[in-house]
Design a protein around this nucleic acid. Structure first.
Length: 550
RNA sequence: GCGCCAGUAGCUCAGCAGGAUAGAGCAGCAGCCUUCUAAGCUGCGGGUCAGGGGUUCGAAUCCCUUCUGGCGUGCCA
């Protein structure tokens, strides 16, 4: 918000001086504090179009802005930067605005209520959620929360792949385990089947409620029954894990239901009408290579069954039909070969493929004692999302997953992560919040806490540390806008760590509650209370608790 | 082979929407609790931003190229 104010003042000044400003220039917070609180490159950017040198231009601007009381000092430095040191009163004014906004601080209409559909996790319902899904859950949900905060109309959806091959295999695996329970010799458990312990648990559960009745059904009925049982159990399990992670979906869309509604036939007919399908080797193909894919793709296999692609495409079309104008899919890294065919289909059917945006979360590599752990759902070797929550807790897990940008591979050393306690940055941030809470408690006990904070106290906030904190607080609205545009929730953690560091330093350096100087104490309490509120806002966006004590 | 992603401090990673002297946490070393929580603070050491070229006032950031690693390249999902 401060950047915009300075930017606007620069524009106003340029116009008053009759300086052309076609090219975009920026106002930034410099890395080096010696370069002021804010800095603009406008003189360097605009020098060429005004046929003058950056220094001359900067000098003019400086002269014109000199009278402005918001700027304590204006300097020209380096190749033509204009550096601003802001006056405390300016920071104080901004701070008061932040304070007045309370919980709604950083809310905006930036997203203009655009309907955005975020699809994530969408794991096969054939086992417990693993840590890759956990990463997707944390990422997607945090992005959702930020987008909502800045005025988009986002929704979260989970697509359930409850039809097709994998589910058949699941049902077969369950049947084998059930036979095993009854003492049948099933021989070696098939390689393709699901080896996880949870399948045994499912068998036990089914056995205890239904016993041999299952085997009295016809083969077809039995498989259907097992399928349904396993799916509903596993889906419930996944839903529970996500809930423990504070991730709630607005919609769960079932592939099976979509198929039953006839969308498969619909999509096939659309594609046929668009004249981009053909028959070959007894299969029906989509000529996706005409639209930029490497090769053509099968829609209907030679055995008459449908590939994964068709209902998934149908699902994407329903998103559009429901009025979403931006579709964000958050995928694992092993799906990037899949994207060109979806884009191709969008083109073939005449939809704007720009509406479809795919974010790839890179893989999570598990290490144990320095060695890579290869995870496989089939082989039953997985570290589940629940394991993770049990061991490190929801807060640390969520923090850990959003702390890295999507495109970065995530190396996760189990032993290190499980040991992580006070070494984890999440505690550093939460501790800063808890410390403020503790100070406030003390102030109330010492009867220093006022009924309401008077605006006159603002003038006492003039220490460098205090102004830096205000500056950081003022940064949040812009940060959230950037996060929402670039889909980069990881920047929340950087922000939190920086703000927390400022709080800890301030705490270490100054005594906040001091009965001997009540007004100064109150001014500082006012600052910290507001900072605490802003921290709570950010924690909420991250889905992490803001503890009052630790 | 082709495609996608990555390569920044001993480790895990920010910075990539060109800006000034490249940052944080952890690990290492040295200090700070008879004042509000030491899960904290202060200081020190640590870098050929994978290599090479280019673009310009300016490149970790943009372009080209080489190398290295991961993933993908099914009538699986």
């Amino acid at each position: 918000m401060i950047k915009e104010i300075i930017h606007a003042q620069l524009i106003e000044c340029l116009e008053a001086l009759g300086i052309s400003h076609e090219k975009e220039f920026s106002v930034e917070i410099p890395n080096n504090t010696e370069h002021g609180d804010y800095s603009s490159n406008c003189a360097m950017i605009l020098a060429k179009e005004n046929k003058t040198s950056p220094k001359v231009l900067a000098d003019k601007i400086k002269g014109a802005l000199k009278k402005n009381k918001d700027f304590k000092k204006i300097e020209i430095a380096g190749p033509g930067f204009i550096n601003f040191v802001l006056s405390p009163s300016f920071f104080q004014r901004i701070f008061w605005e932040i304070r007045q906004a309370e919980d709604s601080y950083a809310d905006s209409e930036f997203g203009a209520n655009e309907k955005v559909l975020l699809e994530f996790v969408s794991a096969n319902p054939t086992g417990p959620l693993n840590i890759v899904s956990a990463r997707a859950a944390a990422f997607g949900d945090t992005l959702y929360r930020v987008m909502k905060k800045v005025g988009f109309a986002p929704a979260r959806e989970f697509y359930i792949n409850d039809a097709g091959n994998q589910v058949d295999i699941l049902a077969e695996s369950l049947e084998l385990r059930l036979r095993e329970l009854h003492g049948d010799n099933i021989g070696e458990f098939p390689y393709e089947a699901y080896h996880g312990e949870y399948v045994k648990h499912l068998a036990q559960k089914l056995n205890s409620t239904e016993g041999v009745r299952v085997f009295m059904m016809t083969e077809k009925d039995r498989i259907d029954h097992l399928k349904e049982f396993a799916l509903s159990e596993l889906l419930e399990m996944q839903r529970n894990s996500l809930e423990r992670f504070d991730v709630v979906f607005d919609g769960w869309v079932s592939e099976k239901t979509l198929r039953a509604e006839g969308v498969v036939e619909e999509v096939l007919s659309y594609l046929t009408e668009a004249d981009c399908t053909f028959e070959k080797d007894d299969a029906i193909w989509f000529a996706s290579s005409k639209y930029g894919d490497d090769k053509d793709r099968v829609l209907m296999k030679s055995d008459g069954s449908i590939t994964y692609f068709v209902p998934d495409l149908a699902y994407h079309l329903t998103k559009l039909q429901r009025g979403f104008t931006t579709l964000i899919d958050i995928f694992g890294p092993d799906h990037h070969g899949y994207v060109p065919r979806i884009r191709a289909a969008f083109q073939a059917l005449g939809y704007d493929e720009k509406m479809l945006e795919i974010i790839f979360l890179q893989q999570v590599n598990l290490f144990e004692s320095g060695e890579r752990v290869k995870m496989s759902k089939r082989a039953g070797k997985i570290v589940t999302m629940d394991d993770l929550i049990d061991e490190v807790g929801k807060d640390a897990a969520r923090y850990f997953f959003i702390a890295r940008k999507a495109s970065a591979h995530l190396n996760f050393d189990l032993e290190l992560a499980l040991k992580q306690n006070n070494e984890n940055p999440v505690y550093y941030c939460q501790y800063a919040h808890a410390r403020i809470a503790s100070i406030i408690k003390k102030a109330k006990k010492e009867k220093i806490w006022p009924k309401s904070f008077k605006k006159e106290l603002l003038a006492k906030l003039n220490k460098a540390e205090e102004l830096t904190i205000i500056q950081k607080l003022a940064d949040l609205p812009e940060l959230l806008r950037l996060i929402s545009i670039h889909r980069e929730p990881h920047r929340l953690t950087t922000y939190m760590e920086e703000l927390s560091a400022m709080i800890h330093k301030y705490y270490a350096r100054y005594q906040i509650v001091n009965p001997k100087s009540k007004e100064l104490s109150q001014a500082r309490l006012m600052l910290l209370e507001t900072a605490k509120g802003v921290m709570a806002i950010v924690f909420e966006l991250m889905g992490i608790s803001a503890p009052e004590k630790m």
